[in-house]
């Protein structure tokens, strides 16, 4: 395996990172909305959101990407591969992050919300200034854990013909006839991104465990 192959893999790696960032950014925005709807005082809103979360947690990501790319195309909505993948991952991430953050919001002691209400803080300020700053701290380890999953999950984008790191690896493997070498390098590349994140997550977990003791 020579320089052109490595460059090709790095090109794939670049798309993996971009995809993960897009999915995480999209998932953060929509996930926050999902978490807020899920913790809504309206039971109907909360139930519908619970259904959304159940749907995306209960079906394989592979299938979700498939549906967004091919089924929408059959319905007349033709999307570029990267658009379909971005939408698919955003939906997927929003369900998982929404559920993680719902738990974190509910883990903030009830007295905090009551104190904010008693001070006549409306819903927006109550969430922005009182609940979410505390919920984010609680959720950080799980959020980082999910980010790591998401990075690895981007390999599924290959199914719609998107050339990210895993697909780049399989192309190199097919052209060089050295699958062990190709996939070995690909594995190391994934590991080098995910491992530092995992360590960071564990560290934060320890830090907050000490802080809340």
């Amino acid at each position: 395996m020579g320089t052109p192959q490595i460059v090709f893999l790095l090109y794939g790696l670049q798309w993996t990172i971009i995809l993960a960032l897009v999915a995480f950014a999209g998932g953060t925005v929509t996930g926050l909305i999902v978490a807020l709807l899920r913790t809504s005082e309206s039971r109907a809103v909360s139930r519908v959101t619970a259904g959304y979360i159940a749907l995306f947690q209960g079906t394989p990501l592979l299938m979700q990407l498939f549906v967004v790319y091919y089924a929408l195309a059959l319905a007349g909505l033709r999307l570029e591969a990267w658009q379909a993948v971005a939408i698919g991952f955003t939906l997927h991430a929003s369900a998982y992050l929404g559920e993680i953050w719902r738990g974190s919001i509910e883990a903030v002691p009830r007295g905090q919300v009551e104190a904010a209400k008693a001070l006549s803080l409306g819903y927006f300020w109550r969430m922005k200034d009182v609940v979410l700053p505390q919920a984010i701290r609680i959720s950080l380890p799980a959020t980082i854990g999910f980010l790591v999953q998401l990075i690895k999950g981007t390999s599924l984008a290959a199914i719609v013909g998107f050339t990210e790191l895993a697909r780049a690896g399989s192309i190199i493997s097919n052209t060089t006839y050295k699958p062990l070498m190709a996939y070995g390098v690909v594995g190391i590349m994934y590991f080098l991104i995910c491992w530092p994140l995992s360590i960071w997550g564990t560290r934060l977990e320890r830090k907050f465990a000490v802080a809340t003791r």
């Binding site: 002691p109 007295g111 905090q112 009551e114 104190a115 904010a116 008693a118 001070l119 006549s120 803080l121 409306g122 300020w125 200034d129 009182v130 700053p133 505390q134 701290r137």
Partner: peptide, 28 residues
């Protein structure tokens, strides 16, 4: 018009004493 003091204080732990006191007057 009505202030409340709770058994468990319910101060906002991520804000300083001063910020605890200025949050509601500024926001509300």
């Amino acid at each position: 018009e009505v202030g409340m003091v709770f058994q468990q204080f319910n101060l906002f732990p991520h804000l300083t004493v001063l910020q605890n006191c200025t949050l509601a007057p500024m926001r509300s």
